[in-house]
Amino acid sequence: MILAQLQIRGEDDAGDSCVADNGFCPSWIADNWERYQDPFLEHLALTLISVAIGFVIAFGLALVAHRRRWLIPPITQITGILYTLPSVALFFLLLPLTGRGKTTAVIALVAYTLLIIFRNVITGLEGVPAEARDAGRGMGLTPRQLLWRVELPLALPAIMAGLRIAVTTTVGLTALVFLAGAGGLGEEIFNDMQFRSNVVVAGGLCVLLAVVLDLLVLAAQKLITPWTRKVAT
């Protein structure tokens, strides 16, 4: 092992044969539950902040590009490069600019979400049926009203789909921000990668968080796009 790892199996666990055998130990998990609480909240906060910032930027870019179509290829290209850049590499590439810590982590995570959200907003807006747009214009809506009352509502399913992908992916990536010194559940995993109980709990919490956030976004989508709900026939 290259980095000295902090063994989280404490002195007082020495007598526990389950822990000693590196088993999957429900009793250890029950005793050490609070250990994961702060990293979990940290993980959650980093995810939400990053997705929120990413959404605001990407959504804004998409609205601008929706008016000036020629902007779509260059924005796609640039956000595409940010998306392709491995986050881990980005953590260190940012070192000279923002140092180690949460700022660096958030910048890298935001960089990753931009393309996902931008592409989905654009796809959603492009998918608006021409008839709906025509009808809106025919009723005398200004371009601005058309955007907010017709196009964006109809694009919502695609936008929310992008948000779901962004959220789940970001939860996964946030597990790496410990490399930038920003904590999160990944740090707990890293602290004792050989201890099964630890890996299962910390990893499981990540997956759980992703699933719950995904379902929340999905629920929000159903709530704000009632017309997409299937009607029983």
């Binding site: 590196n22 996964g172 597990a175 995993i189 099964r196 997956v207 995904d214």
Partner: peptide
């Protein structure tokens, strides 16, 4: 969808922890 949610570091750790 599930694949996206599983953190890479957790997956690697799982293999190392369970197949030492």
């Amino acid at each position: 969808n599930v694949g996206r949610a599983v953190p890479s570091v957790a997956l690697i750790a799982l293999f190392v922890a369970f197949f030492p």
